[in-house]
């Protein structure tokens, strides 16, 4: 196991390096930063001074080396717009995004797995068909459209729920959270549903398919032949087997959730990192864009690694292959 993790970690370092190069090159390709940094009425001398100051006269590889050196020290540049370290700026926004992401993941698990199990055990029941129909819908419509429709229905026409912002927050360890106040909770409902919709549909489908497969399997028939009670068959024999792929998918979905928070946060004006990146893109705030992308790359690598480890601990068959 340790060998496996070490090997994966070294692969990850290479991957981060490659990605940092791609991100650096990519962002380098967006226009000439001098135009954004230098006032239009600056003299040629002032212009040169700024070019030298930012090292923009150096060859590309040297600039990249500097960028990498700074990045290793946790310095990904300063935001043009806010004149703050880009990383710190993002770090302030991370808790809001994570709050949404965890809440939607929770909703997905709490709702998706039981519904999927139900639909898997009674594939022909009318209620199962309804569940599957709704999940097919949630699976295919664009998330931003669903968000808009919810805003239109619940905020504009019915006036039940607020459509933007985090509402009242309470600080835990200095980090503001919404879920501890009634007002904050009300602000969370729509964004969380919006962010969960796709995942929920996916998990329902996966759980149902897995359940149907397991229910047909010989070992469930054998469990019945052993005279086990139905509850135990469902909760131990069926669920344990179905949960292995679901856990994997949920882990990977967590990364997708962070990415899709871009959409949800834009619609509901939720002050997380997704909203920040969209705002930064619109004003070409390059250090923030670069910092966000690097953070996302690292996060995805970590998530993939963690998911692989979880998978191999959950499935005893994988564990054995590891020992060999």
């Amino acid at each position: 196991m340790a060998v496996f993790i070490l090997r994966r970690l070294s692969q990850s370092v290479v991957l981060v390096l490659v990605m940092s190069m791609l991100v650096f090159l990519g962002v380098f390709a967006i226009g000439d930063p001098i135009n954004t940094l230098v006032a239009p009425d600056a003299t040629e001398e002032e212009r040169q001074a700024i070019v030298v100051h930012f090292g923009l006269d150096k060859p590309l590889y040297e600039q990249y080396g500097r960028f990498l050196g700074n990045a290793l020290r946790g310095d990904l540049g300063r935001s043009f717009k806010f004149n703050e370290p880009a990383l710190a700026l993002i770090a302030q926004r991370v808790p809001a995004t994570l709050e949404l992401a965890f809440a939607s993941l929770l909703l997905t698990v709490v709702l998706g797995i039981p519904l999927g199990l139900y639909a898997g055990f009674r594939p022909n029941a009318r209620s199962s068909r309804l569940i599957m129909g709704v999940s097919a819908f949630g699976f295919s419509v664009p998330a931003f459209w669903l968000g808009l429709m919810m805003v239109m229905l619940f905020s504009v026409f019915l006036g039940w729920l607020p459509a933007s912002g985090r509402g009242t927050t309470v600080a835990i360890l200095g980090i503001p959270v919404s879920f501890l106040t009634w007002d904050g909770l009300k602000h969370m409902i729509l964004p969380v549903i919006n962010l969960a919709a796709f995942k929920l549909s996916l998990i329902i489908r996966l759980t149902r398919a897995g359940t149907q497969e397991v229910v047909m399997s010989d070992y469930v028939k054998y469990a019945k032949a052993k005279g086990l009670r139905n509850g135990r068959i469902v909760l131990v024999h069926v669920l344990k087997n179905t949960l292995i792929p679901i856990t994997t998918v949920l882990g990977l979905e967590f990364g997708r959730t962070i990415a899709f928070a871009v959409v949800t946060e834009t619609i509901f004006a939720w002050p997380g990192m997704g909203k920040l990146i969209i705002d930064s893109i619109s004003v070409l705030d390059r250090p923030v864009i670069v910092a966000y992308l690097m953070l996302i790359v690292v996060m995805f690598i970590v998530i993939n690694l963690v998911v692989d480890i979880i998978y191999s601990t959950l499935d005893p068959r994988m564990r054995l292959e590891d020992q060999r």
């Binding site: 991100v23 990519g26 962002v27 871009v262 893109i281």
Partner: peptide, 12 residues
């Protein structure tokens, strides 16, 4: 996620 890659590409 596809959306993220497309987003980065379009920024570039």
């Amino acid at each position: 996620p596809a959306l993220l890659i497309a987003l980065v590409l379009l920024v570039v």
